[in-house]
């Protein structure tokens, strides 16, 4: 079936299998491979994107449900070579090892900081409870969130 979605500001149309997820639409049909596919069951958060401004797992959204709607992915955080302050904080804090979980974390952190510019630790842990990292042990990810929060100086990203 044909699905038309506004992705990172631009309308895109693609032909997908009717049972396809938004994640399959983004990765396989539109070539946006920043959102990762790891579990396809909502457990890992590596496919996190925004659908009409809401943080969701793209693997759990039927592509047809996104038809006519606004999707923002990790690719939409920056243009050109510059990194988003949250991405830069991940690099500086050493919060990336294999990097597979990183796009999902970055999206979830941007979402958190847009709603709470100065979150305390329980709040950060709660906000990231839907994102799994198999490498870092989370400590450096928490450091990255705090670093990003201070970089952004409380202004919304």
């Amino acid at each position: 079936m044909r699905v038309r979605v506004r992705v990172n500001g631009a309308w895109r149309t693609a032909e997908v299998w009717p049972g396809a997820s938004l994640l399959a639409l983004l990765r396989d049909a539109l070539g946006l491979c920043g959102s990762k596919n790891a579990c396809e069951q909502g457990e890992c958060g590596s496919c996190s994107v925004w659908l009409d401004g809401e943080l969701v797992c793209a693997c759990l959204v039927l592509a047809a449900q996104a038809d006519g709607r606004e999707v923002r992915t990790v690719e939409g955080l920056t243009t050109g070579e510059d990194l988003h302050p949250v991405q830069r904080a991940f690099v500086e804090a050493g919060a990336v090892q294999c990097g597979f979980c990183t796009p999902g974390f970055v999206v979830a952190v941007v979402d958190l900081l847009s709603r709470d510019p100065d979150p305390d630790e329980p709040r950060i842990r709660e906000a990231l409870s839907g994102n799994l990292c198999r490498c870092t042990g989370y400590q450096k990810i928490l450091d990255a969130v705090r670093l990003a929060a201070s970089k952004l100086g409380g202004s919304s990203p």
């Binding site: 049972g19 069951q41 759990l60 039927l62």
Partner: peptide, 26 residues
């Protein structure tokens, strides 16, 4: 029917269920 998809999409993605039709209620 499919609403949030947080139960149903898991079944579709993992090939546990293949309904003849889906009805988006969202």
């Amino acid at each position: 029917p499919i609403a949030g998809g947080t139960d149903l999409m898991v079944e579709l993605n993992l090939n546990r269920r293949r309904p003849r039709a889906l009805l988006d209620v969202s």
